[in-house]
Simulated scan of single mutants.
Amino acid sequence: MKCLLLVDIQNGFCSGGNLAVPGGEEVVEIANQLTAEGGYDLIVASQDWHPADHGSFASQHPGSAPFEVGTLGGKPQMMWPDHCMQGTVDAEFHPDLDTSGFDHIQRKGMNVAVDSYSAFRDNDHMALTGLSDFLAKQKIDRLDIAGLATDYCVKFSALDAREMLPDVKVRFIEDASRGITPDGVKQAIDEMVRAGVVVVNSADVLAEADGEVRTVTSAGRSSK
């Protein structure tokens, strides 16, 4: 059972968004191809869904500026611009992203008192989103992860998947993801690899899916 997790491909993280990732919109076409041709049994997407007064917003801390490190809940916290606020265009999926095949949308970041980079749990690890239980019930054995941003929400989602779904092979699709800084991306990939995440690209995934279809067809059964 193969699952694709698309992380936070939202207007807020693409050009013109409140927290744009350089080249963020470039992943949309690749994501669409993966959902259509990647041979996945399950497509899941995460969505940042912050209340307007979320504690990670610099605007909620007088004297703070975006991208400064402050505190939230007594722990260090990067202060972000207001982004992906519930019900706003900024929080919507990119308009060119094909959402018609999504089987499950996991919203996150709704607790004003803690940030939530991972699609699986809050940053303090005190509250789960429910995604790990959902995927376990689907009996997936492979989870491919892509989206925005590599050095934050994608990385933490991949690391949590490795820890919370220990029997699942977790892969990071590098060319279907974009990060905030080159150094941050490199460090994130190194950290994921050390944790046992396999790095692939979309061509690998599509070639695998094509091979599986050809094998099934040659065996005389209808392809997926």
Rank of each mutant, 00 (worst) to 15 (best):
I105E: 06
I180Q: 12
S132F: 07
A161R: 07
E212K: 06
H61M: 11
Q60A: 15
W80D: 04
P62N: 14
S177F: 12
G38K: 03
G23C: 03
E163Q: 14
M79H: 13
E25K: 08
R162F: 01
V89G: 12
H61C: 14
D96P: 07
A119L: 07
D103G: 15
K186P: 09
G211F: 00
A195L: 08
A52M: 04
R221I: 01
V44D: 03
V21A: 10
I43L: 11
G24K: 09
N18L: 10
K169R: 13
P95Y: 04
D8L: 00
E212W: 03
N18S: 13
D141E: 13
G147A: 01
Q77I: 00
V193S: 10
A136I: 05
T99N: 06
A158S: 05
A176G: 14
D115P: 14
E92Y: 09
H83Q: 01
V112H: 12
S157D: 04
A149L: 08
A209R: 08
A20L: 02
P182K: 07
Q10Y: 05
P66V: 07
Y40M: 09
T150K: 04
V198A: 13
V114N: 09
L131P: 13
H94Y: 07
G87H: 05
N111Q: 15
S116Y: 10
A161M: 03
S64I: 12
V170M: 10
L34A: 03
V199N: 06
L148N: 04
D53S: 13
H125S: 14
Y152L: 15
K155D: 06
N111C: 15
S116T: 15
I105H: 07
A45S: 01
G196S: 08
L4Y: 13
K75G: 14
A127Q: 15
P95L: 00
T217A: 06
V213R: 06
A65I: 09
V27Y: 02
A219G: 02
G179C: 09
G63K: 11
D115W: 10
G74S: 10
L5K: 00
F67H: 05
K224M: 00
H54L: 12
D115V: 11
F57Y: 00
V168A: 12
V197R: 00
R178H: 00
K155H: 04
D204Y: 00
P81D: 04
A36E: 04
A136L: 10
L131I: 09
A31P: 04
T99H: 02
Q138Y: 05
